[in-house]
Amino acid sequence: MSASLAPIPSDVAALSFEEALAELEKIVRGLESGQQKLEEAITAFERGSALRRHCEAKLAEAETRIQAIVERADGSLGTRPLA
């Protein structure tokens, strides 16, 4: 889809994965109901495409880093990497 080349709007990028997924589901349901006007449907589709790309980007973020909390002598907290 050519829409995937467009940058993800900032308001979409700020959404959490579940928010984006929930909105995508809502848009899909709305479109599937067939009640929308064509212009609205196209706008919704574009938003849905952005949400989809955002979701996929979130899914692509895979991090395995592990750190442990360290309680220092002065009572403050720090972290140290854990093998």
Binding site: M1, F17, L21, L24, E25, I27, V28, L31, E32, G34, Q36, L38, A41, I42, F45, G48, S49, R52, C55, E56, L59
Partner: peptide, 19 residues
């Protein structure tokens, strides 16, 4: 999750093309 997103993406495309 990827399957869920892919399924929704498919429904999105289908719904729009049907419209």
């Amino acid at each position: 999750l990827a399957a869920d997103v892919a399924q929704k993406t498919g429904r999105l495309a289908t719904a729009v093309s049907r419209l």
